[in-house]
């Protein structure tokens, strides 16, 4: 991405492995970009994967950033307040739950210049917004449809099977929540029978 000899320290304004992996390996034609859905090991091993010299780097003049790990409660105004510190924002697209049309923890921030986007990678990515460490990644640009989560239940994929309790992102993963609810239901039914039986025996 950057000509010249490699620096003696890493640069923070490089696109993440996600982008390259996606472009290089899967070539999926779907929307959104929330799914680090592969197992962790896989991602780790492929961090250094480089695209096979694409004719033109689509991120060369990127002005858009994908912003991840937001709280569902973070508002556009908060994003504006923080991200304006790197330059005027041209457009902000909040990521929404596909079904409920409520924020689901990511957004796209578009600046007027590529430099502002790079600066945002360097100075804002990995810092806190609304008391959560947020993630930024260079993005080739927003397209209609990408504002929606790609998870089964409408949110981001990562919020389906997450087994840590994250209050800012709706607690446990939704699939796990649903599973627990079913289980609780079953238990209640079973316990209910139990008690009935117990009572009857008495």
């Amino acid at each position: 991405m950057r000509p010249g000899p490699r620096s003696t320290v890493d640069r923070l304004d490089q696109p993440s492995a996600y982008y390259h992996n996606r472009n290089n390996k899967r070539r999926r034609n779907d929307h959104g970009r929330d799914g680090k859905d592969g197992s962790k090991d896989g991602d780790t091993e492929m961090t250094d994967a480089k695209p096979e010299e694409p004719p033109e780097d689509p991120l060369k003049n990127a002005t858009t950033l994908y912003v991840g790990n937001l709280s569902f409660y973070t508002t556009e105004e908060q994003v504006y307040e923080l991200f304006s510190k790197c330059g005027e924002i041209k457009r902000l697209v909040m990521g929404l739950d596909r079904f409920q049309k409520t924020p689901c923890g990511f957004c796209f921030v578009e600046y007027y210049t590529h430099q502002d986007a790079l600066d945002c990678m360097k100075y804002i990515g990995g810092t806190k917004l609304d008391e959560r460490v947020i993630r930024t990644d260079l993005d080739p640009g927003f397209e209609e449809g990408r504002q929606y989560g790609r998870g089964k239940s409408g949110g981001q994929v990562r919020d389906e099977y997450r087994d840590d309790f994250d209050e800012g992102r709706g607690g446990l993963g939704r699939a796990i929540q649903a599973e627990r609810m079913r289980e609780a239901e079953r238990n209640r039914e079973r316990d209910g029978h139990h008690e009935d039986d117990y009572g009857r025996l008495r």
């Binding site: 003696t8 923070l12 490089q14 961090t47």
Partner: peptide
């Protein structure tokens, strides 16, 4: 980036 201050990119998992 051996040493080099020890700080890697937050995007770099490797």
């Amino acid at each position: 980036q051996p040493g080099g201050g020890g700080g890697g990119g937050y995007n770099s998992r490797k």
